[in-house]
Simulated scan of single mutants.
Amino acid sequence: MSATSHRQALIIGASRGLGLVLAGELARRGWRVIATTRQNDSELHANADVWNGRLEVESLEMTSSEQLAALRERLADRQLDLLFVNAAIDRGNLSIDEVSTDMFTEVMVTNALSPLRTLEALRGLVAPGGTVAVMSSDQGSISRNTEDGYELYKASKAALNQLMRSYATRYANDGQTKLLLDPGHNRTRLGGPDAPLDPHDSIPAVVDILEAQAGAPGLQFLDRHGETVPW
């Protein structure tokens, strides 16, 4: 990676929760951060004022190919050390027989298809030796799926992991580090108020991993402790 004062990151999906904390943590460490939101009045805009130009806000609906292309054009003169896609939705603790086709499509498009389309659209902005990363979950681990519940969400994360593996195979020789990261069960809108982890505690550990793994070859699926998550 480049020198600390010049490291640049693009965080996709930073309006709240883990993405918002991630953008702030990178800015705190001296990164120049571009962070996207779908909302004009998100907390992200308020945070941008705090970081003295180290945090920029861009508008993006990640599921829109047109908006991805437009963002790519707006950032054409940038060179990124990190491209991080953070996006997920959940539609409740339903068994698969309770999931409508429309709900299945919505969750799979948001949680699996769109993150990889985003990497495809924006990977050309990443510098040689840079990192592309996606926020995953141990809920996507097939071997750890030993408890009932949240079947659609688990399936979407497993699909995300598989698509990322295909991506890593296709671009095996591009020199970029590729990471799937499990931040643990955090107290966010998605994780719920009873989750055991606070994002302000878990996300600094995630950033430690991002910085430590910079330049590492191949694809890794790691938790916030840097331990490998089984596929």
Rank of each mutant, 00 (worst) to 15 (best):
M1A: 14
M1S: 14
M1R: 10
R7F: 00
Q8A: 04
Q8M: 10
A9K: 12
A9W: 04
S15F: 07
R16W: 02
R16C: 05
R16A: 08
G17M: 00
L18A: 05
L18I: 14
L20K: 01
L26F: 05
A27F: 03
A27M: 05
R28S: 12
R28G: 13
G30N: 07
W31R: 12
A35R: 06
T37F: 15
Q39W: 06
E43L: 08
L44S: 07
L44G: 04
A48D: 04
D49H: 03
V50R: 14
W51I: 10
N52S: 15
N52D: 15
E58M: 14
E58F: 10
E58V: 12
S59M: 14
S59T: 12
L60A: 11
E61V: 11
S64A: 07
E66Y: 05
L68N: 05
R72M: 13
E73T: 14
R74T: 05
L75G: 09
L75I: 09
A76N: 08
A76E: 11
R78F: 10
R78W: 09
R78A: 09
L83C: 08
V85E: 01
N86H: 03
I89P: 02
N93F: 07
L94G: 06
V99H: 10
F104V: 00
E106Q: 15
V107A: 14
T110R: 03
N111C: 03
L116D: 08
R117A: 06
R117L: 08
A121R: 12
G130I: 06
V132S: 05
A133L: 00
M135Q: 11
S136C: 01
D138C: 04
Q139H: 12
S143G: 00
R144V: 00
T146I: 15
T146Y: 06
D148K: 11
Y150V: 11
E151Q: 13
E151Y: 12
Y153I: 06
L160D: 04
Q162V: 11
Q162S: 12
R165S: 15
R165M: 09
Y167G: 09
A168Y: 08
A168V: 04
G175T: 12
G175L: 09
L179M: 07
L179S: 07
L181V: 10
D182K: 10
P183I: 04
P183A: 06
G184I: 08
R187D: 02
T188R: 02
R189N: 11
G192S: 10
P199I: 03
P199T: 01
P204E: 03
P204G: 02
A205M: 12
V206S: 07
I209A: 05
I209K: 07
A212L: 14
Q213D: 06
G215Y: 00
P217K: 13
G218I: 11
L219E: 07
L222G: 03
L222K: 06
D223S: 04
G226A: 03
T228Q: 09
